[in-house]
């Protein structure tokens, strides 16, 4: 035991918690209107830009303490990304509310093209980045080896789980959460009972965008770099995570993310990183063949 295996677990856990945060956006939107929001990865990408912009702005105003920087960036990014989520829903999805199931899917693909190129045109094609905010690492001795935990990674894990906890609280115990759940269970009934379902759907898009914003800030901090293309791969991975955990289920999204992260990390660490994505997708296919509703999803009951 030289710490290598444990280190790979930690690597996978950080990666997975990030996947999980983005997966929440997919799972909530799917749960409520049954639509795969392909533009969600791009919303994350925009939030990464916003995080970098806000850091640059704060640095310009001479703010240097880490807590203040973090707080300012989080607030700024979350608010603006939330507005993005709201606006996108208004423009591209709401007019399609009552049409076929695939129409919003195509519209979402259009939106993701728009967002990618919008970011590229307005910010330039270059790679963007943020300076390293939290330097240094913690070294935990394990047997003959060690596990290296950067402070950034610890911060990410804590922030991701706090974010998840807050969201779970909102969905479980607040009025907004009850409205969301009611709309998810039966949209028509909910609207009969006086819930403005259109508004609830807007809220859900905003919540998804907010979680993507949180992920955007955290990922940008950890890896320090991104570009206008960053949303694509991570979007597909997060979507896979959402399905793996059972699409529509909040804890499922987090669990799916972590399983995906750890399996990728272990596979590329122990076997071969060339085929790690092949492995993750095969894992997904296997799980879905034997458990079609995903790990924590509710089984589909066909109604006549």
């Amino acid at each position: 035991m030289d710490g290598i295996f444990l280190q790979q677990l930690v690597n996978g856990l950080t990666l997975g918690s990030v996947y999980g945060l983005i997966a929440i956006g997919y799972t909530m939107v799917y749960g409520i209107i049954g639509m795969i929001n392909f533009a969600h990865g791009e919303v994350y990408m925009i939030s990464a830009y916003l995080a970098a912009i806000s850091l640059a702005l704060l640095a310009y105003f001479g703010i240097e303490s880490f807590p203040l920087l973090m707080l300012g960036t989080l607030l700024f990014t979350i608010v603006v990304t939330g507005v993005y989520g709201f606006t996108i829903e208004r423009i591209a999805y709401k007019p399609l509310r009552n049409s076929t199931r695939l129409a919003p899917l195509i519209s979402a693909i259009g939106i993701s093209l728009i967002l990618q190129n919008y970011a590229q045109i307005s910010q330039g094609a270059r790679q963007q980045g943020v300076p390293t905010l939290l330097e240094g690492a913690m070294r935990v001795e394990v047997g003959t080896g060690f596990v290296q935990l950067t402070y950034t990674k610890i911060f990410i894990l804590v922030a991701a789980f706090v974010g998840m906890g807050l969201l779970t609280y909102v969905i479980k115990y607040t009025k907004l959460g009850r409205m969301c759940r009611a709309t998810q269970q039966d949209r028509k009934m909910a609207s009969i009972l006086g819930i403005n379902t259109d508004r609830v759907i807007s809220y859900v898009f905003v919540i998804g965008a907010v979680m993507a914003a949180l992920a955007g800030v955290l990922i940008t901090m950890n890896y320090g770099t991104f570009d206008f293309y960053a949303g694509f791969i991570i979007g597909i991975k997060a979507f896979t995570a959402a399905v793996l955990g059972g699409i529509g289920s909040l804890p499922g999204a987090m669990l799916g993310g972590i399983i995906l992260g750890i399996s990728e990390s272990l596979f590329s660490g122990l076997i071969n990183s060339d085929y790690k994505d092949v492995f993750s997708f095969s894992l997904l296919v296997m799980i879905l063949i034997f458990r079609p509703q995903g790990l924590l999803g509710r089984p589909l009951v066909a109604k006549v």
């Binding site: 790979q8 690597n11 990922i219 991104f226 990390s265 590329s268 660490g269 990183s273």
Partner: peptide
Amino acid sequence: YEGLTRGEKDFSAVVTKIRS
């Protein structure tokens, strides 16, 4: 001798492998 995936940013698994 291994390949990374373009567009990804997390290479920590490979880095740990380099370490080992």
